[in-house]
Amino acid sequence: MSASLQSAAGTQPGLARIAGHVAAISGEVDRLLGIETEGAHTRADKLSQTLAEMRAMASLLAEMRAEVVGLAPPSSDLGDALDAVVSETEGAAFEILRQAERAQAAAGRLNRGETADPSTDLAEVDAAATSIVLACAFQDITGQRVRKVLSTLRQVEARVFVLVQMLGIRPEETQTQSGSRDPRSDAHLLNGPSSAAEGGLGQSAVDDLFG
């Protein structure tokens, strides 16, 4: 196994199995190299057959290596980019809430007639609204980050698909071996947000179910 493949397998656990396949093929090549041929008649045929198999395996190994190398994302900051999105959206939401509460407080004072100078509280509401508008700029920044991550994920997905086909892995194998089990008793019910097309219900449909 090449040093780069060993390194890839070490840094990405998902590649460990591929590395195992490569090792198995290497072992097969070693076994073929040790084949004892029998009889002068068949020796040339067997050698020819062995060489053809070795060439096929070498070719497969080269293809797999290229795919594994291609699996490495162009940049290794995908997780950081998504962390930044979570952090930026949370920060923006807090800022918007803070400004909304500032406007609510000023509006409350105006409603209750507790303000000496109404123009001060009106200016407060106006300033809060402007801050909310500015805080919404997070969508542009986070949108760009998410689009970049999506683009990389699509590249990796396409290469994984090629590798899975190359190795002849059946879909049921990938399902049974993926990830560790969620210990929560209702893990099978944690679907996350669902659109109507995905079977998600609106509030009125939920109310109907609740009777």
Binding site: L190, P193, L209
Partner: peptide
């Protein structure tokens, strides 16, 4: 919750939820 599938609503009702609100609300 954002969990809005029928199986979720039914499970929550069976478990004794008083009401069920879907996010965003």
């Amino acid at each position: 919750t954002a969990e809005s599938k029928t199986e979720n609503v039914v499970a929550a009702k069976q478990a004794g939820a008083s009401q069920y609100i879907v996010k965003p609300f």
